[in-house]
């Protein structure tokens, strides 16, 4: 099982299990991570699953597509070099141990 750590807006650390092939946003939702509204359900249109990649096997993350880039850039929140939309990240075993900080909405 791939374990992913999310640090919630208030600093609480939550470890969730991600199913291979499903998005990290879904793993966070199912695991009850605070601050990820995931309003559009993973369509890359709301940016409410915005997280920062903090540490772990970051090389396992897929490259950012144009949709994700645009959605992040023009969302109302401030974006950072390590910003990602977790709905666009498909879980794989290599991601085990990744740590994200929730930005959310």
């Amino acid at each position: 099982m791939t374990k992913i750590v999310f640090i919630e807006p208030d600093g609480t650390q939550k470890t969730v299990e991600a199913l291979e092939g499903a998005s990290l946003m879904l793993a966070a939702t199912m695991g009850g991570v605070e601050g990820i509204a995931a309003e559009c359900g993973g369509n890359c249109v709301c940016a409410t699953c915005h997280c920062l990649v903090l540490e772990g096997p970051v090389e396992s993350l897929s490259e950012m597509g144009e949709d994700e880039k645009d959605t992040l850039e023009f969302s109302a929140e401030k974006i950072f070099e390590n910003s990602r939309l977790t709905c666009q990240l498909e879980a794989c075993p290599e991601m085990d141990g990744l740590v994200f900080k929730v930005v959310g909405k």
């Binding site: 959605t71 850039e73 023009f74 969302s75």
Partner: peptide, 10 residues
Amino acid sequence: EPGIHMLSRR
């Protein structure tokens, strides 16, 4: 055109 959409919202 998700880029134009997101920018338009802003």
